[in-house]
Design a binder for these strands. Structure first.
Lengths: 228, 228
DNA sequence: CCGAATCCGCAGTGATACTG
DNA sequence: CAGTATCACTGCGGATTCGG
């Protein structure tokens, strides 16, 4: 069943044999945010066939990258979570995401943004250097979307939903188009954001999460695909 | 030719739409070492169908990741090389390769090692911290294989073939099995290597290129713990 | 020799329906 | 909720062929 390998004894090759198949890294990106159930994953990966999700989950579990957990009492069902090996992929996902962000053009008409996408973008944009000696908590609202980010001691904690503690600054965006991360940053730079809390932390946010080197609209990467 | 996208406006997603298809990152890995011709690539990617290589090269060129060059005078023909966008993938390839290296088991019977594989491994293993203030040149020989590595000012220059200047230490391995990078490191640690030059640089080599930091999951800066 | 294009069988994928 | 089952389709693997 397994797709054939590449016939080379090489780290990159092995990595691609394990997580290089279609949808695999996107599944892992969503699991990087938090453990998720089968249907959560289906929802976060628009268009993935259910059988393919099941197949990938099985393969990734066999590879030791993720694990199945019987869900805790409150919700019954199964939960998928990263193993330490899977969590070790975080730098790879962040680095690849940073590269891809530089060639994000305008959104295609059928492209969407999920909470996991925004959290991943926040983590990829995080500049640990700029956050040294800083302790702060932000909350981002845009439509249905709520995401939090907290930095302390040069580290980042971020995830879907409201922050655990009281945020120092709540940023609420009212956008026409997609609440994509570049769009949020752009809006924040233009002041198109409602602020609640310590307003000085807006500039701080832009310094730490501001994509200083990314995403020029109009940089066309060729055609990633007019679907359908 | 409908390249199917993933329907998300996301950096990682876009990256995978551009370089996520089978063989693409391996082609780019080989081009990362040096510009190569069509047949060089065929040789370095055992088992790739010729039509698939041609298709990938066309797609990657359209995406602006690589470019076709009319070869210089000496050999006529075409040469493929990375654009700046393609070269920007180097951290991603190195990071993914480091992850994959941690799950390299024993070589499968049909797996081989190419020069580009070893050079990529050398670059992935390079510890810039350990190389600070160090200036040295090594040359590695193992069977047909010749690779050089030179560090100066905390940076690394490495490639296929002998070094440009006279190497400070030449290491010649006589291995039974595959000259894979882990096997070379293992052999070097056991002293199973012929040395020619400054023998003290063997220990230095192992400190700088010795894969000491393999598989340390969980201790990543900026990585939140598992939340629930 | 280099740089592909062409043809074909099949595995991996996509969409939908269905089940414990 | 958490998957299987079915089936059509397309991208891939393998071989051969073809034009500079």
């Amino acid at each position: 069943m397994t797709r054939r390998g590449f016939g080379q004894y090489c780290g990159l090759t092995r990595a691609l044999e394990v997580v290089g198949e279609r949808w695999a890294l996107l599944i892992l990106r969503d699991l990087m945010v938090q453990p998720r159930r089968y249907t959560d994953l289906l929802e976060g990966l628009p268009g993935i066939p259910t059988n393919l999700l099941a197949t990938r989950l099985r393969e990734l579990e066999e590879s030791g990258v993720i694990e199945r957990r019987i869900a805790p009492a409150s919700h019954r069902g199964v939960v998928y979570a990263l193993t330490p090996i899977g969590r070790a992929l975080e730098p790879s996902i962040r680095t690849l995401g940073q590269w891809g962000t530089t060639l994000l053009g305008d959104p295609q008409p059928d492209e969407i943004v999920t909470p996991a996408v925004v959290v991943t973008a926040v983590r990829a944009a995080f500049d640990a250097q700029a956050a040294r000696g800083l302790t702060a908590t932000w909350e981002i609202h845009a439509g249905e979307l709520t995401v939090h980010a907290e930095t302390v001691g040069g580290k980042l904690e971020s995830g879907v939903g409201p922050a655990g503690n009281t945020p120092d600054l709540v940023m609420t965006f009212r956008l026409d188009g997609l609440p994509s991360y570049p769009a949020l940053i752009q809006a924040a730079k233009c002041g198109l954001v409602e602020l609640d809390g310590d307003r000085k932390l807006l500039d701080t946010f832009l310094r730490v999460f501001g994509l200083t080197q990314a995403a020029q609209p109009g940089a066309k990467p060729g055609t990633p695909g007019p679907n359908e």
